[in-house]
């Protein structure tokens, strides 16, 4: 029963969705501060190459994850500085970050006399429980059979939700994203709040990136993440800026990414659909979801932070 196509598809969807959860929750936190970071793709790649390299050097997965978090946070400081301190267009700065990050990760993967490309990971994330309850029908593979980061992703989504809606810092964060002038007058340090949360979002994106070469495909290849960073930006809207919903949105897209392999195992006529068509499914789904959600009157109830993307200058008149 645990070998049925349905179960296998869901398990795979959870795996493919996990890095998307990290990146999406990260971007939600960033956007809740009013900063649009289109550099997620680049940040994820930098996190991926740093995390893979750290584990490759030390053999430690923990150090790999720490390295990816730090790299993501450090890399996104570029965007924070450009958009908060210099107040340049967040779209331009974010795109620049993605272009830079993509090139940097690719370069780091090929640099040196002994490049990372093609190297297998020295260690990888495996299911934390094997046998026992992990073999129970249905709930075994769906709930207990995952690696640690799957559970960390659940915790991250729950913690982010709690932080946003139940703590004073979360209140400050939401206020800064809605109306920085009002927040500042109420005694909130707008620039500080924005910096911290752009970096937190970057750290989570870096972690999401590292999941690919350390768990999903444990080797270094050029661009191991596909277009996950871009999908994450769409998922923020699909999740209407709420971390809990990001969990489900990410798994939905994980399933969409997996469906092409499932269909090929089902035989004719499914397997005759060209793989390139099937590979488009997540992106088509993203477009449909965005249109359905953001068109007409529904857009108003989505909950996009009102000051998203707008530079804040206190002495503006």
């Amino acid at each position: 029963m645990n070998d049925s196509q349905l179960i296998l598809t869901i398990v795979a969807a959870i795996g493919l969705g996990t890095p998307l959860i990290f990146a999406t929750v990260g971007e939600i936190i960033t956007e809740r501060a009013g900063i649009l970071n289109l550099g997620v793709q680049g940040t994820m790649l930098v996190g991926a190459v740093t995390g893979f390299w750290a584990t490759f050097q030390t053999g430690s997965l923990t150090l790999g994850i720490l390295a990816s978090l730090l790299a993501g946070a450090a890399f996104s400081v570029i965007h924070a500085f450009a958009s908060i301190t210099l107040r340049v267009s967040q779209i331009v700065s974010g795109l620049a970050l993605t272009i830079f990050g993509t090139g940097l990760a690719s370069f780091l993967g090929k640099a040196g006399s002994d490049p990372l490309v093609g190297e297998p990971a020295r260690d990888q994330f495996d299911a934390i429980i094997s046998g026992g309850i992990a073999d129970w029908p249905v709930v075994g593979p769906l709930i207990f059979g995952h690696d640690i980061l799957v559970y960390v992703a659940w915790i991250a989504a729950g913690a982010a939700s709690y932080y946003l809606f139940r703590t004073r810092m979360g209140l400050s964060l939401r206020a800064v994203g809605e109306d920085p002038a009002s927040a500042e007058s109420a005694g909130v340090n707008v620039a500080w709040v924005r910096y911290v949360h752009v970096m937190a979002g970057g750290a989570l994106a870096g972690l999401g990136g590292a999941y690919y070469p350390l768990a999903l495909v444990p080797t270094w290849q050029d661009n191991p993440i596909g277009a996950a960073g871009w999908i994450a930006i769409a998922l923020v809207i699909l999740a209407s800026w709420r971390p809990w919903r990001a969990l489900f949105a990410a798994y939905l897209f994980g399933a969409a990414a997996r469906i092409q392999f499932t269909l090929q195992t089902l035989g004719e006529p499914w397997s005759s659909i060209p793989a390139t068509i099937l590979a488009m499914i997540p992106f088509v789904l993203a477009i449909i979801a965005m249109i359905a959600l953001t068109s007409g009157k529904r857009a108003r109830f989505l909950g996009a932070p009102a000051a998203l993307g707008i530079p804040y200058f206190r002495e503006q008149r």
């Binding site: 004073r168 810092m169 209140l171 400050s172 939401r174 206020a175 809605e178 109306d179 002038a181 009002s182 927040a183 500042e184 007058s185 109420a186 005694g187 909130v188 009102a306």
Partner: peptide, 20 residues
């Protein structure tokens, strides 16, 4: 006015106060 439109009255009062 410098009030955050999407927050409640109570939240606006609390905002920035005893932040820790």
């Amino acid at each position: 006015f410098r009030l955050v439109p999407n927050l409640t009255v109570a939240e606006n009062l609390a905002l920035g106060h005893h932040n820790l």
